[in-house]
Design a binder for these strands. Structure first.
Length: 420
RNA sequence: GGAGGAGUGGCUGAGCGGUCUAAAGCAACGGUCUUGAAAACCGUCACACCUUUACAGGUGUCGUGAGUUCGAAUCUCACCUCCUCCGCCA
């Protein structure tokens, strides 16, 4: 959500932003609703002021007849208020609905583009492995080594179901232990955060109302969050933080649930796109400064790049184009890992910053040095998500015989240098 | 699942139809005093929105929403959250 005053004063900016993001939003509709809302407010507030001043007079009148007259007169004022208040309620409801749809303005540095095809590579790291044989995909490798069981996964959990078994489970835990150590060294507070969350948290983080179809919902009207970001961001919702306590850096661990409603035909096999997975998410709340947000955005991205490098996984970083940005995002980098079997890079991380788009909805504020209340800025990036990261990890380290070389940093956790 | 109790400013907590413009205390901040600090004393101390170039004025907010009333922190209803006891339980 953006500040209505800002929207009023920057109509063209909002229009340009929406266009760049390929989001259809009519600002003039919102401004018209706002004009109506304010006109009604002025009328109502004037009447209330009249009513309030009469209250004092009624108290002072001792003569019962005069008093009755006063009260009768006030009743008239009140009756005329009721209709206008009802009208304001309607107008405000419509206004709020529109406010939730206003897209945040993308940064100047975000390239133009329609979809992920318009994303631009900004960094690459690592040499793509050259195999003297035809590389196998992670499904074949994992099944042969009994690291995963997809047939039983489907039997038990349905479409996109999977089990990690034996060394698959061991490898997965090794990644987690390495990640824990790695990110704790970056100043993050580790947290286990809820996946089962209330609707407000999803509205606050900007996943609702648009993403209703992507979310699992319970019979109690709670939701299964698709990312730990939701609960971690909401951790401080409604609170006033101390400026000296910023930035808040959280490393949130949680199971993540996604219905993948719009991607039924994509990545249907293996662990690329599953309904249920685990993720460490990096979250930062910082002071309300564009420069500080940009600095932390780079930092969050570099943290993840470094992590991938510690695992020796070749990857690149792309800056997402306007058409590939979400409603609230100002700028986003995706980190994509090299997947030999597909001869392409696939997304493993997504780093975005929002300015105060999320914190305005979540009402997370701090008192600035000038004594003013400000909404903090918010950012997030994946730290690591499994089992997806296992795909590049396994495929890039495969040998001709189908065994897998274990990266140096994981050997201590696994207790061996190869899986065979 | 059942029974009871409670939600008031950063915190503690009084108020239970009009005098609430929400007592008091603590914390915080500014000042006096001091070589410096502590103590003491004096002062400041919620947020949001609307009107206004500004000065200033107005409205709303006592968990949330609806209702009763000329008037609600105070009465009624629903919901949310927390606490206590019983039951169930990793």
């Amino acid at each position: 959500m953006l500040d209505i005053k800002f929207i009023r004063e920057n109509k063209e900016l909002i229009e340009m932003g929406a266009k760049k993001k390929h989001i259809a939003f009519d600002v003039s509709l919102l401004l018209a609703a706002d004009d109506k809302r304010r006109a009604l407010m002025i009328a109502i507030e004037a009447k209330r002021a009249e009513q309030n001043s009469f209250n004092d007079k009624i108290m002072q009148v001792t003569d019962p007849v005069e008093r009755t007259n006063f009260i009768a007169e006030m009743k008239k004022v009140k009756d005329s208020l009721v209709a206008e208040e009802e009208q304001l309620k309607e107008v405000t409801k419509n206004w709020q609905l529109l406010m939730l749809q206003v897209p945040n303005i993308p940064d100047m540095s975000v390239p133009e583009g329609d979809d992920d095809g318009g994303n631009r590579e900004v960094k690459t790291w690592g040499d793509k492995p050259v195999f003297s044989f035809k590389p196998k995909d992670h499904i074949e490798l994992m099944e042969k080594l009994k690291m995963a069981d997809f047939e039983r996964g489907a039997k038990v959990a349905g479409f996109r179901g999977y089990f990690l078994t034996g060394d698959g489970a061991v490898l997965d835990f090794a990644v987690w232990q390495h990640a824990m150590k790695f990110f704790a060294g970056k100043g993050f507070t580790p947290m286990f955060v809820p996946s089962l969350v209330r609707r407000e948290t999803l509205l606050g983080t900007g996943y609702l109302p648009q993403g209703e179809d992507d979310m699992y919902k319970t019979q109690d009207n709670d939701y299964l969050a698709g990312t730990g970001e939701v609960a971690a961001m909401s951790f401080y919702s409604g609170e006033v933080l101390k400026k000296e306590d910023l930035p808040k850096k959280i490393l949130a661990f949680s199971p993540c649930f996604r219905r993948e409603a719009g991607s039924h035909s994509k990545d249907t096999n293996g662990v690329m796109r599953v309904h249920e997975f685990m993720k460490f998410e990096q979250i930062i709340l910082c002071e309300a400064s564009h420069e500080v947000s940009v600095r932390f955005h780079e930092e969050l991205t570099e943290n993840a790049e470094e992590f991938m490098q510690s695992l020796g996984i070749p990857h690149r970083t792309v800056v997402n184009c306007g058409g590939d940005l979400g409603l609230g995002q100002v700028k986003k980098y995706d980190i994509e890992a090299w997947v030999p079997s597909q001869n392409t890079y696939r997304e493993t991380h997504s780093a975005s910053y929002f300015h105060d788009f999320q914190t305005r909805r979540l009402n997370i504020r701090y008192k600035d040095t000038d004594g003013k209340m400000r909404f903090t800025h918010s950012l997030n990036n994946t730290a690591v998500a499994t089992p997806r990261v296992l795909i590049p990890l396994i495929e890039n380290n495969q040998r001709e015989d189908g065994s897998i070389n274990v990266p140096e940093v994981l050997r201590a956790y696994i207790g061996k240098d190869s899986i065979q």
